[in-house]
């Protein structure tokens, strides 16, 4: 549905997104992962037409996005600042405005979400706490029912129960009105079950894309006596190493063939899974 071709986003001499070719299918929930400064916000802004591509193209169902009403009216991006109106605007006025501006906006559903998130319609946007503002962003984003709905760290400042509420409402509405979601997040372990696919952006490039379970199965932790472990991992992709006394743990990336598995069993090496978050940290350059 949305596609980029050799997309580049530049700020002066700084390149935020490098020649990105990306295509997202309709009706799926995608996760966008990446460290701070990886280019997530630049990418999302350009996909939404907030920013003109410095080079390359962004198209929605074949039509350009930037300055094309047929496209932008079907796209909704809620930024990480939750800015869906002026700080002095009351929430109910912002919702009325959204209903005027967005062809598919569902006022009744917005009202339902306002109640669920316990938001006071009479408050102004500027008077909300960080978590409430994020929640209001979720209300505006979900009620837009846009064919492509994107949230840049939708859960910023939300407490755990509110994040669960967000997941519940997202999944319920996704079930009732299937559409494409792209959610950026730093809460990898918590949010990843929501995604059908994740995209990992690193230094402006797409580092990895695929099934979350697939990614999970690519990490293997090998634990055992240091010298044995060193011999075992020779020639394999090592992401990280850690030693505790005579014991060493090495994180490997990629599938382990049967021969290696037998070898590990013979030498008494322990093979274990790696937490998604650790795998992500290792893939994106480790802990500084």
């Amino acid at each position: 549905m949305i596609a980029t071709n050799a997309l580049q986003v530049r700020y002066g001499d700084t390149i935020a997104v490098h020649d990105l070719d990306l295509e997202l299918a309709a009706g799926r929930i995608y996760g966008l992962l990446g460290r701070n400064g990886a280019g997530k916000t630049s990418l999302l802004s350009t996909l939404a037409g907030f920013r003109k591509p410095s080079a390359g193209t962004v198209t929605l169902d074949g039509r350009p996005v930037f300055e094309t009403l047929e496209s932008t009216s079907r796209i909704c991006l809620i930024g990480d600042d939750g800015a869906v109106g002026d700080g002095t605007d009351r929430l109910r006025d912002i919702l009325d405005m959204a209903a005027t501006l967005r062809p598919g906006f569902d006022t009744g559903y917005a009202a339902h979400l306002m109640d669920r998130f316990a938001l006071d319609r009479k408050k102004t946007l500027g008077a909300l706490s960080r978590g409430q503002r994020s929640a209001f962003g979720v209300v505006a984003g979900l009620a837009s029912r846009a064919a492509l709905t994107m949230f840049d760290e939708a859960h910023l400042g939300m407490d755990a129960p509110t994040r669960q509420l967000f997941a519940d409402e997202l999944l319920a509405d996704y079930g009732a009105h299937p559409r494409t979601f792209l959610l950026s997040t730093h809460l990898i372990e918590e949010q990843s079950p929501l995604f059908e696919q994740v995209l990992i952006l690193h230094e402006g490039r797409l580092l990895w894309r695929g099934d979350v379970d697939d990614l999970r199965s690519r990490g293997i932790a090998v634990t055992g006596p240091a010298s044995v472990v060193d011999d075992f991992v020779y020639g394999l992709t090592v992401l990280a190493e850690r030693a505790l006394g005579p014991t060493k743990q090495v994180t490997l990336y990629g599938d382990l063939d049967d021969e290696h598995r037998k070898l590990a069993a013979r030498y008494g090496l322990e093979l274990g899974p790696v937490a998604l978050q650790d795998l992500f940290i290792h893939l994106t350059g480790g802990v500084p």
């Binding site: 009403l69 009216s73 079907r74 909704c76 800015a83 405005m97 959204a98 501006l101 837009s144």
Partner: peptide, 10 residues
Amino acid sequence: STMIVHGRTR
């Protein structure tokens, strides 16, 4: 800014 956030064009 607000108009663009709500899907309108420049």
